[in-house]
Amino acid sequence: MAASMHYMYCLLRPRFFHPNARTYAKKLVGKVGSAAAQKTRMEVETDPQKLLTHCCGANIYVEGDDPELKKDSDYPEWLWNLRTERGGADLSELDPNTMAYWRRLTKLTAQRNTRVSKRLTKLKAIQYPDDALP
């Protein structure tokens, strides 16, 4: 019974159908001169008094002003302990019994291996210039 059902399916299916055929969505093209396509530059604040009392550039709305800065005691304590430099935490600062430590170690190892691989490729091209690809 199953074999005959498969046979009937093969006879009745359209011949142009291919199970791996890909269809792509039509690309949407906007007007080049539209207002949404043009970027606007924000004006840089030069007033020193306003720079000391307001958080310039924090207003995301068309209307309104930038928010005023409050006293340091009005903000939570953890805000002043945030890490602001790039690169993430050092391995010496992390506990080896946590998942964050091992993720960081994996990332640093992958970065090191990538750097070494690039250096070896350059060295190989210098030592064996005939084998280099065009």
Rank of each mutant, 00 (worst) to 15 (best):
L120V: 03
G30A: 06
L52H: 01
V32E: 12
Y101L: 07
A37S: 10
F16A: 11
M42T: 06
T40I: 11
D66L: 04
K39C: 04
A100C: 04
Y75F: 03
S4H: 04
A35S: 08
G87A: 11
T109V: 07
V62P: 05
A2V: 08
P134F: 12
I60H: 10
A89S: 13
K122Y: 09
Q127E: 13
K70D: 12
Y9W: 09
L91W: 06
Y24G: 04
L123I: 09
L52C: 01
L51D: 02
Y24W: 09
T40D: 05
F17C: 08
L51R: 12
T53C: 04
T23W: 08
L91T: 06
A35K: 08
G57L: 00
A25F: 01
M5Y: 13
R119D: 03
T106G: 15
D130Q: 14
T53A: 06
A110R: 15
N81Q: 15
C10W: 09
Y61N: 12
P14W: 02
L69Q: 08
L123Q: 12
V32D: 06
Y128M: 09
C56F: 00
T53K: 09
R83A: 08
L133Q: 13
A2E: 14
L28V: 15
D90L: 15
R22F: 05
E45S: 01
Q38G: 02
C55W: 11
D47H: 00
A58Y: 09
S73D: 13
G30L: 10
W80C: 01
C55E: 07
D130V: 12
G33L: 08
T98E: 03
V32Y: 06
L123D: 11
G30D: 07
L120H: 03
A58D: 05
K70T: 05
G87W: 11
R41H: 01
K71M: 14
F16V: 09
R119N: 03
K71L: 15
C56N: 05
E85A: 04
T109N: 11
D47G: 02
A3T: 05
L69I: 14
L52R: 06
T84R: 14
R86P: 10
E43Y: 10
D95A: 04
R119L: 11
W80Y: 14
D131Y: 08
I126A: 15
Q38W: 02
A3N: 03
K31R: 09
W80P: 00
Y7T: 09
A110P: 02
W78M: 00
D90H: 14
G33D: 15
D131R: 13
A21D: 12
M99F: 12
T109P: 00
R13W: 00
A89H: 08
N97S: 11
T40A: 12
I126Y: 15
D74R: 08
L108D: 11
P14D: 13
E45N: 03
Y128S: 10
L28C: 10
V116W: 07
D74C: 11
Y24L: 07
K124A: 13
Y61P: 00
G57I: 01
R83K: 12
H54P: 03
P76F: 00
L12H: 02
